Structures are given as structure tokens and as C-alpha cells.
Simulated scan of single mutants.
Amino acid sequence: MDYELIRKRIQAITTRINEIGGEVQEVVIDEPVSLEQIIKTEEQLGVTLPESFKKVLNEFSGNFSLRWFLPDNMEQPNEFREIFCGTPHWSLELLPQFEEDRIGWIENVFPNPKDDYDVVWHNKLAFCEVRNGDYLAFDMKNSGDAPIVYLSHDDGEGHGFKIANNFVEFIDNWSRLAFVGCEDWQWLSFTTSPESGIISDGVAANRFRTWLGLEI
């Protein structure tokens, strides 16, 4: 993966948000973490982290966060009216807390693996907490690497949608869409089905970049 390209995209995104009068609240790209730190976390969680996730943690950043917001008075095309921010983040250190929270949802709200809605919460590994209480998570049914899916706690339209086939694909596609907000209503415009994942070269994605004035 070309991490320098990802850094350039982040710079382009933050520059453009500032140019249009939006707000960039945070840009955090901490140092990569060691394999020893990753192994320690795996032992704490009792799972092996997906290969592409470990690769990014070890080669790019073990703690990443970007927070930007569009101007309140900005007029948006109808198809993008739900998009108002970008809030991507991941952290090796926070994984155990996210997993504890996910397990809590299973124990208290979604306990039945035979229920079509509940089962989506099972056999996952949460890595990104959405501000509305949902999560982005790895589907741990796959060995070696894992696709990324959306976990909604409140009948969200994107519940169970596959967002990407693996973490590297996820970052690549998401960054080309300015890391639009984690809430499903912000990225659903860039999917065509529950299995399509985020499509960064589709018609909607190209229209979005043109509207926002981003060449990434």
C-alpha cells in the first residue's frame, strides 16, 4: 500500500475543507506500532487480527484520527445531503474497549445468533466506534484477512453491509471519498448493494469529488 499517497490525500482533504470554510478539528497520525504490541493485543483479545489491519498498524499508524466538518450553510446536492463530516479513526490501544462494547450489545440486545438481525453482531471485531452507537467491524468468519461490515444498533439501513473486502481496500477507497462520516447514511450513496462495498470510482463517487472540488 502507498502510504505516502494516503498522506497526500489527507492533506488534500484538509486543505479543501479549510478552503470552503469548513472546520478541521483533528488530524492524528501516530507512529506505527511494533509486532510485539500487536501480539500483546491479540493475546488480550483472544483473536488474531486481520492481516491487512496488522500491516497498516505496523507500517503506517497505530492510532489514526481525522475530524472535519462542512460549513453549516453549504448547499449540497440532494444525493449528498446527509454528508456533513468525516470522522475516520482506528487505534490498537482502543480495540479492547470497542470489543467489550460490542460484546455488551450482544449480551444485552442482540443475543440470538439465529435471528437475522442479531447474528450480524456475532463473530465480529469492532475497530471503529460510530458516534451514533454503531460500529465498523471485521467479519471474523474469514481466516487470514477479513472484510469490513457495518453494525447498526437501531435498524440502520446499512446494517450488515460489506464496506470493503479488507482493511487496505477500505482505506484506499474511503480516502478517495474524503473519509466521509462513518454513519451509514453518509456512505451508502457510494454502494450499489449490501455486498458491493464502497465504490470509489463509481458515478456517485466522481460526482461527489467534483462537487467538493477534490482531485484525489
Results as ranks from 00 to 15, higher is better:
47 V>W: 11
47 V>R: 15
47 V>K: 15
48 T>D: 12
53 F>T: 07
56 V>W: 03
61 S>E: 05
63 N>I: 05
64 F>G: 02
64 F>Q: 08
68 W>I: 04
69 F>W: 09
70 L>V: 06
73 N>Q: 08
73 N>T: 10
74 M>S: 00
75 E>R: 11
75 E>A: 10
76 Q>D: 01
76 Q>T: 14
76 Q>G: 00
76 Q>A: 09
77 P>K: 10
78 N>H: 13
78 N>L: 14
79 E>S: 12
80 F>S: 07
82 E>L: 15
83 I>Q: 03
84 F>P: 00
85 C>I: 09
87 T>G: 04
89 H>V: 00
90 W>Y: 15
91 S>Y: 09
96 P>K: 05
99 E>N: 08
99 E>P: 01
100 E>V: 02
102 R>Y: 08
102 R>S: 12
102 R>Q: 13
103 I>W: 06
103 I>F: 07
104 G>W: 10
104 G>D: 14
105 W>I: 08
105 W>V: 13
108 N>Y: 09
110 F>S: 01
110 F>V: 03
111 P>S: 03
111 P>T: 00
112 N>G: 00
113 P>W: 07
114 K>Q: 13
115 D>N: 15
116 D>M: 09
118 D>W: 03
119 V>N: 06
119 V>Q: 13
120 V>K: 12
122 H>N: 08
122 H>F: 12
126 A>C: 15
127 F>Q: 01
127 F>K: 03
128 C>F: 02
129 E>K: 15
129 E>Q: 14
130 V>L: 01
130 V>A: 06
131 R>F: 12
134 D>T: 01
134 D>W: 00
